[in-house]
């Protein structure tokens, strides 16, 4: 099932790139997509979960943060540099799937003042470069907010249960 979804998705991308849903394009896309799906089977681990409402919330929050992040960078570029105190902070995650961890790592790099440098397993930990580490806990809280939103949108039940155990985020759960 997972493979079928990827096949359809890749074919759709192919057809869009050719601008025209002709028979030749669809067949060509199916062939290319088939080869890719057969050769690269890296996404087989775990089912793909999408909760539409939570996903919309994640997207809205992410887009807002992207705008905010640009304002922050713009301000830091123009204004004096006394706000900068760079550092690398380790932020443990609470056991989400590889796909969700990738999403979180990507989103961190596009949200204000943070950049993912390294991902470690066992325990799953992100190493985040931050422009402002005067408050390390604030940096960690920001990443965890992102984690909560991402896991609610795309995480499996085990990851969701993991969130509930944590005090720092439970106030957002209700």
């Amino acid at each position: 099932m997972n493979r079928l979804v990827r096949l359809v998705l890749l074919t759709a991308i192919w057809v869009v790139l050719w601008s025209e849903p002709s028979v030749a394009n669809v067949v060509g896309g199916l062939v290319v997509a088939g080869v890719i799906v057969a050769l690269f089977d890296t996404w087989r681990r775990g089912p793909v979960i999408v909760r539409p409402l939570a996903a919309a919330r994640f997207l809205a929050w992410f887009l807002w943060k992207l705008v905010e992040s640009n304002v922050v960078v713009a301000r830091t570029v123009v204004a004096p540099r006394d706000r900068i105190r760079t550092g690398i902070v380790a932020v443990p995650l609470r056991g989400c799937s590889d796909a969700v961890a990738t999403l979180i790592a990507d989103a961190i790099s596009l949200t204000p003042g943070t950049l993912t440098l390294e991902v470690r397993r066992d325990p799953l930990t992100l190493y985040v470069h931050a422009l402002d580490t005067r408050d390390v806990e604030q940096v960690q809280r920001d990443v965890r907010t992102l984690e909560v939103l991402a896991v609610r949108a795309f995480g499996d039940d085990a990851a969701l249960a993991g969130l509930a155990d944590d005090d720092t985020t439970s106030w957002r759960a209700s």
Binding site: G87, V89, T116, L117, T133
Partner: peptide, 24 residues
């Protein structure tokens, strides 16, 4: 960006100085 940053940390002769903590 992730991979440039990751490689830069391990490479020599690149200015990756930090003011604050360095957990990595």
């Amino acid at each position: 960006a992730h991979f440039i940053g990751r490689a830069a940390y391990r490479a020599e002769g690149i200015d990756v100085r930090l003011d604050g903590p360095d957990d990595l």
